Amino acid sequence: MTTTTGALLPEKFSVLDSWVADWSLATRTERYAMRLSKNIDELSAFYDAVAPLAEEAIEYLDTLDINDLPEDATRLLNLLYSFILVSYPVNIFKQPRIPDSGAAFFNNVVEPAI
Protein backbone atom coordinates (compact mmCIF):
# COMPACT_ATOMS: atom_id res chain seq x y z
CA MET A 1 0.00 0.00 0.00
CA THR A 2 1.33 3.42 -0.97
CA THR A 3 1.39 6.25 1.56
CA THR A 4 -0.19 9.61 0.89
CA THR A 5 0.03 13.11 2.25
CA GLY A 6 -2.37 12.25 5.06
CA ALA A 7 -5.68 13.18 3.40
CA LEU A 8 -8.51 11.08 4.76
CA LEU A 9 -10.12 10.52 1.35
CA PRO A 10 -9.28 11.52 -2.21
CA GLU A 11 -10.06 15.23 -2.61
CA LYS A 12 -13.23 14.83 -4.69
CA PHE A 13 -14.72 12.67 -1.91
CA SER A 14 -13.60 14.79 1.05
CA VAL A 15 -17.23 15.64 1.81
CA LEU A 16 -17.37 12.11 3.28
CA ASP A 17 -14.41 12.64 5.64
CA SER A 18 -16.66 12.82 8.69
CA TRP A 19 -17.78 9.22 8.09
CA VAL A 20 -14.26 7.74 7.94
CA ALA A 21 -13.72 7.19 11.67
CA ASP A 22 -16.85 5.08 12.09
CA TRP A 23 -17.21 3.44 8.71
CA SER A 24 -13.86 3.04 6.96
CA LEU A 25 -13.18 -0.28 8.63
CA ALA A 26 -10.80 -2.93 7.33
CA THR A 27 -12.85 -6.08 7.94
CA ARG A 28 -16.40 -7.24 7.44
CA THR A 29 -16.56 -8.23 11.10
CA GLU A 30 -15.76 -4.66 12.15
CA ARG A 31 -18.25 -3.23 9.65
CA TYR A 32 -21.02 -5.57 10.79
CA ALA A 33 -20.37 -4.77 14.45
CA MET A 34 -20.58 -1.04 13.61
CA ARG A 35 -23.84 -1.62 11.76
CA LEU A 36 -25.33 -3.36 14.79
CA SER A 37 -24.13 -0.56 17.10
CA LYS A 38 -26.10 2.07 15.14
CA ASN A 39 -29.81 2.75 14.96
CA ILE A 40 -31.66 2.92 11.65
CA ASP A 41 -31.55 6.73 11.56
CA GLU A 42 -27.76 6.69 11.88
CA LEU A 43 -27.48 4.01 9.18
CA SER A 44 -29.78 6.00 6.91
CA ALA A 45 -27.75 9.18 7.39
CA PHE A 46 -24.55 7.34 6.41
CA TYR A 47 -26.25 5.68 3.44
CA ASP A 48 -27.73 8.97 2.24
CA ALA A 49 -24.34 10.69 2.45
CA VAL A 50 -22.50 8.05 0.40
CA ALA A 51 -25.19 7.11 -2.13
CA PRO A 52 -24.86 10.16 -4.40
CA LEU A 53 -21.09 9.60 -4.71
CA ALA A 54 -20.97 5.80 -4.82
CA GLU A 55 -20.83 5.33 -8.59
CA GLU A 56 -18.25 8.07 -9.01
CA ALA A 57 -16.18 6.54 -6.19
CA ILE A 58 -16.29 3.12 -7.88
CA GLU A 59 -15.24 4.66 -11.19
CA TYR A 60 -12.38 6.46 -9.43
CA LEU A 61 -11.21 3.28 -7.69
CA ASP A 62 -11.38 1.36 -10.98
CA THR A 63 -8.61 3.63 -12.31
CA LEU A 64 -6.21 2.48 -9.58
CA ASP A 65 -4.27 -0.73 -9.01
CA ILE A 66 -6.21 -2.58 -6.30
CA ASN A 67 -2.96 -4.14 -5.07
CA ASP A 68 -1.27 -0.78 -4.55
CA LEU A 69 -3.99 1.62 -3.38
CA PRO A 70 -2.96 4.84 -1.65
CA GLU A 71 -4.21 5.06 1.93
CA ASP A 72 -6.90 7.61 1.06
CA ALA A 73 -8.26 5.31 -1.67
CA THR A 74 -8.18 2.32 0.70
CA ARG A 75 -10.29 4.30 3.16
CA LEU A 76 -12.70 5.15 0.35
CA LEU A 77 -12.94 1.48 -0.64
CA ASN A 78 -13.65 0.49 2.97
CA LEU A 79 -16.28 3.22 3.17
CA LEU A 80 -17.96 1.72 0.09
CA TYR A 81 -17.86 -1.74 1.66
CA SER A 82 -19.67 -0.32 4.69
CA PHE A 83 -22.14 1.45 2.41
CA ILE A 84 -22.99 -1.89 0.81
CA LEU A 85 -23.33 -3.53 4.22
CA VAL A 86 -25.88 -0.95 5.37
CA SER A 87 -27.86 -0.91 2.11
CA TYR A 88 -30.12 -3.83 3.05
CA PRO A 89 -30.93 -2.57 6.55
CA VAL A 90 -31.74 0.87 5.15
CA ASN A 91 -33.64 -0.18 2.03
CA ILE A 92 -35.19 -3.52 2.97
CA PHE A 93 -35.10 -4.41 6.69
CA LYS A 94 -35.65 -0.91 8.11
CA GLN A 95 -33.57 -1.97 11.12
CA PRO A 96 -29.87 -2.80 11.74
CA ARG A 97 -30.45 -6.54 12.29
CA ILE A 98 -31.84 -9.06 9.84
CA PRO A 99 -35.48 -9.59 10.86
CA ASP A 100 -36.40 -12.89 12.49
CA SER A 101 -32.82 -14.12 12.55
CA GLY A 102 -32.24 -14.10 16.30
CA ALA A 103 -28.57 -14.04 17.12
CA ALA A 104 -27.53 -15.82 13.92
CA PHE A 105 -24.22 -14.60 12.55
CA PHE A 106 -21.49 -16.19 10.48
CA ASN A 107 -17.93 -15.40 11.46
CA ASN A 108 -15.34 -15.33 8.69
CA VAL A 109 -12.10 -17.10 9.41
CA VAL A 110 -10.40 -14.96 6.76
CA GLU A 111 -11.53 -11.98 4.74
CA PRO A 112 -12.48 -12.74 1.12
CA ALA A 113 -9.82 -11.94 -1.46
CA ILE A 114 -10.37 -8.72 -3.32
Rank of each mutant, 00 (worst) to 15 (best):
L77R: 12
S87G: 05
Y47C: 03
D41M: 04
L77A: 08
D41E: 14
Y47D: 07
I92N: 08
E30P: 05
L79M: 07
S44M: 05
A57R: 05
D65T: 00
R97A: 12
Y47T: 07
L77N: 13
L64Y: 06
M34P: 04
L80M: 12
D65R: 08
S87P: 10
T63N: 13
I66T: 04
K94E: 10
T63A: 09
I98S: 11
D100P: 06
N39T: 10
R97M: 00
I98C: 12
I58P: 01
K94C: 00
I40K: 05
R97D: 06
S82C: 14
P96S: 13
L79Y: 08
G102S: 04
S82N: 05
I92A: 11
M34V: 06
T74K: 02
Y32M: 01
I92K: 06
R35S: 03
A57I: 10
L64R: 15
K38M: 11
Y81H: 14
A73W: 01
S37D: 12
D62W: 00
L36Q: 15
I84D: 07
A73H: 09
M34R: 15
Y60N: 06
E55T: 14
A104Y: 13
D41I: 00
D68F: 07
P99Y: 05
A51Y: 13
L80V: 00
I58V: 11
I40D: 03
V86K: 09
A103D: 15
F46C: 13
A104N: 12
D48E: 09
V50Y: 03
P52E: 11
I66S: 14
F46E: 04
P96R: 05
D65M: 00
I66M: 06
A49S: 11
N107P: 00
T74E: 10
S44A: 02
K38P: 00
V50I: 12
E59T: 12
A57S: 14
L77K: 00
L85H: 08
E55V: 09
Q95V: 02
Y81C: 08
L85C: 11
S87T: 15
Q95A: 06
F83M: 00
V50R: 04
D72F: 03
I58F: 02
N91F: 01
K94S: 10
L85F: 01
K94L: 05
D48S: 15
E71D: 15
D72E: 15
V50D: 04
A103E: 14
Y32D: 09
I66W: 03
N107I: 04
A33S: 15
L69F: 11
N78D: 14
F83E: 02
Q95H: 00
L64G: 07
L79K: 07
Q95N: 08
L61I: 09
E30W: 02
R75M: 02
F106C: 01
A33L: 09
L43G: 11
R97Q: 11
F93I: 01
A103K: 14
Y32H: 13
T63P: 03
F46A: 08
Q95T: 13
A49R: 07
L61F: 02
A49V: 14
N39G: 11
E30T: 01
T63Q: 15
R31A: 09
A33M: 03
Y47S: 03
N39A: 03
V90A: 10
L85E: 15
A45H: 06
A45T: 15
A51L: 13
I40Q: 13
F106M: 01
L69A: 09
Y32T: 10
T29K: 07
Y88L: 12
V90G: 07
G102I: 01
L36W: 13
Y88H: 01
F105Q: 09
